[in-house]
Structures are given as structure tokens and as C-alpha cells.
């Protein structure tokens, strides 16, 4: 019994210590005056690596998810003669939920794991230590640009995801199944509110971007610098950030849409 309590206490303490280290890392990276001359090229490179390189998987996934959504929605709606509502159905589910959540999950798998592995390997090959010994802060040089790149690109990716998915839904719903194009767009336009749906979806995206990028960077920065440690850290990035995204999605949805 005492043994169990001791283990529990130890686990809790180390979890808190790890949250503390993660916060310290993030604050260390963000709380300093950015140097525009040196920082901009680093940020642009990371935006390319983290954002642009994720475009393909985001767009292809978006297209298929939109197509499936239209197909499933149509089969249900047509039974009630309500197939004209396919547009708002698709748009609302994408903008409020699927866009931010699926993008965050894909982003964790595509870019998050890459960030963790890259930083973990930089640690294992002493590149982070050598930066420190060259009087260059690795938090500023390595962590900060990657964080901002993730934070900026994920909401944009989520918007692109939703847009492509709506086009996919149009392809299946309108071009294939014969829903009226005018009602598809006009009912969507009247039902979707900028404030309630698009802005709230964007806020979700920013929160998920913070969570996923933070977890990915921390796991890499704090990993045990061996091949086993890096593989464990990469797995943890994907698992922890996916779970955190789904958990926070529930909380945010409850706050934003429950009333």
C-alpha cells in the first residue's frame, strides 16, 4: 500500500516537474526580443518545413473527408427531402469541428513527430550543446522559430482543409448526386456565421496549434538522447498531442457552443 502511494506520489511529482520544464522551455523561447534580421529567415525556413510541407496531406485528406461527408449526409438528408441542407451541414461540421481537429491530428503526425525527432537528434548529436557553447541560445535559435511556424501555419492549414473539403463535398453532392448548386451555396452562406462558426473554429485551431507544437518541441528538447529515447519521444508526441487535442476540443466546444 505504502509502496503504491509512494509510486503514485513519485509519478505525480515527476509529471509536475515535467510540466514545469515544458513551461520554462516555452517561456525561455518566447520571452525575448526577436531579432528581425536573424529571426526572419529562420522563421521562413520553418514555415516552409512545418507549414508548406504539410499542405499536400492536409489538402488530400480534406478533399476525401469532404466527399465522404457529402455522401453520408446526402443519404440521410434525402430521406427527409432535405438534401438542400447539405451545404450548411458540411460547412458547419467542417468549420466548427473537423477542420481544426483533423488538421491538428494530421499536423501532429506529419509535422509534430518531425519536430520532435529533429530536435531529439540535434540533442543526441550534441548540436544543442554546441550552440550553447558558442554562446547561442538554442531556445531562441531552434525552439522559438519552430514554435511560431507551427502556431502560424496550423490555423491556415485548418482553413485550407475546410475550404478543400467543402469543394470535395460540392463535387460529390452537387456534381454527382445532383443537389442544386444554388441552394448548396446560398443556404450555406445564410447558415454559417462569421463570428460563431468561422472565428470559433479559428480560435480552436490556434489553441490546438499551441498544444501540438509545444508538446512536439518539449518532447524533443527533453528526450533521452539515444535512439530508443528519440523513438519514445516521437511516439509520445503523436499520442499526447492527439489526446490533448481531443480533450481540449470537448472543453472548447462546451464553452463555445453549449449555450
Amino acid at each position: 500500500m505504502i509502496d503504491l502511494l509512494q509510486k503514485l506520489g513519485h509519478k505525480t511529482l515527476s509529471r509536475f516537474a515535467s510540466i514545469g520544464r515544458a513551461t520554462q522551455m516555452l517561456l525561455g523561447a518566447l520571452l525575448n526580443v526577436p531579432n528581425l534580421r536573424k529571426g526572419t529567415p529562420l522563421l521562413i525556413k520553418q514555415l516552409y518545413m512545418v507549414g508548406h510541407q504539410s499542405l499536400l496531406i492536409i489538402m488530400v485528406s480534406g478533399l476525401f473527408i469532404g466527399m465522404v461527408l457529402a455522401l453520408q449526409g446526402y443519404t440521410v438528408l434525402v430521406g427527409y427531402g432535405a438534401e438542400d441542407s447539405l451545404g450548411p451541414l458540411v460547412a458547419l461540421s467542417l468549420l466548427r469541428e473537423l477542420g481544426p481537429v483533423v488538421t491538428a491530428l494530421l499536423f501532429a503526425g506529419r509535422a509534430g513527430s518531425a519536430l520532435t525527432a529533429e530536435i531529439g537528434l540535434m540533442k543526441a548529436t550534441e548540436q544543442l550543446s554546441s550552440l550553447e557553447m558558442m554562446a547561442v541560445d538554442p531556445l531562441k535559435r531552434v525552439v522559438a522559430p519552430r514554435f511560431w511556424a507551427g502556431f502560424i501555419s496550423m490555423p491556415l492549414l485548418a482553413l485550407i482543409f475546410s475550404a478543400v473539403a467543402i469543394l470535395g463535398a460540392h463535387l460529390v453532392g452537387v456534381d454527382w448526386l445532383g443537389v442544386d448548386s444554388g441552394s448548396f451555396w446560398s443556404i450555406m452562406q445564410s447558415q454559417v456565421s462569421l463570428q460563431q462558426d468561422i472565428m470559433n473554429g479559428l480560435i480552436k485551431s490556434f489553441v490546438f496549434a499551441l498544444i501540438v507544437t509545444w508538446i512536439a518541441l518539449y518532447k524533443g528538447y527533453d528526450c533521452i538522447p539515444t535512439s530508443e529515447g528519440i523513438s519514445k519521444a516521437t511516439t509520445e508526441t503523436v499520442v499526447h498531442s492527439s489526446l490533448a487535442v481531443l480533450g481540449f476540443d470537448f472543453v472548447l466546444t462546451a464553452v463555445m457552443f453549449s449555450s
Binding site: 548529436t125 550534441e126 554546441s130 557553447m133
Partner: peptide
């Protein structure tokens, strides 16, 4: 300055 074992 420091020369690391791996070169780094």
C-alpha cells in the same frame, strides 16, 4: 570553444 566528440 569546445570541440565535441562527434564534431556536432
Amino acid at each position: 570553444s569546445m570541440l565535441f566528440q562527434s564534431g556536432a
